[in-house]
Simulated scan of single mutants.
Amino acid sequence: MSGRQPEGAPASWEVFLRPRRGLAHQHMGSVRAHDPDTALLRARDLYTRRGDPLSLWVVRSDAVHTASPDEHDPYFANARHKPYRYPEQFAPLTTEKGPDGEHDD
Rank of each mutant, 00 (worst) to 15 (best):
S2N: 07
S2P: 07
S2I: 02
G3A: 02
Q5N: 08
G8C: 05
A9T: 05
L17F: 00
P19L: 03
R21W: 07
L23N: 03
L23I: 00
A24E: 05
A24N: 12
H25N: 11
H27S: 09
M28F: 12
S30I: 01
V31L: 06
V31N: 03
A33W: 04
D35V: 12
P36L: 04
T38I: 12
A39Q: 09
A39K: 02
L40V: 07
A43F: 00
D45W: 00
Y47E: 02
T48R: 01
R49D: 02
G51W: 08
P53W: 05
S55C: 00
S55G: 08
W57T: 02
V58I: 10
V58H: 09
V58M: 11
R60V: 06
S61L: 12
D62A: 11
D62W: 08
H65S: 05
T66R: 13
S68L: 02
S68A: 10
P69I: 00
E71Q: 13
D73M: 02
P74H: 06
P74V: 06
Y75G: 06
F76K: 06
A79P: 03
K82H: 09
P83S: 10
R85V: 07
R85A: 08
R85E: 10
P87C: 04
P87Y: 04
Q89Y: 09
A91C: 10
L93S: 13
T95C: 11
K97A: 15
G98F: 08
G98V: 07
D100G: 15
G101M: 00
G101R: 13
G101V: 11
D105S: 03
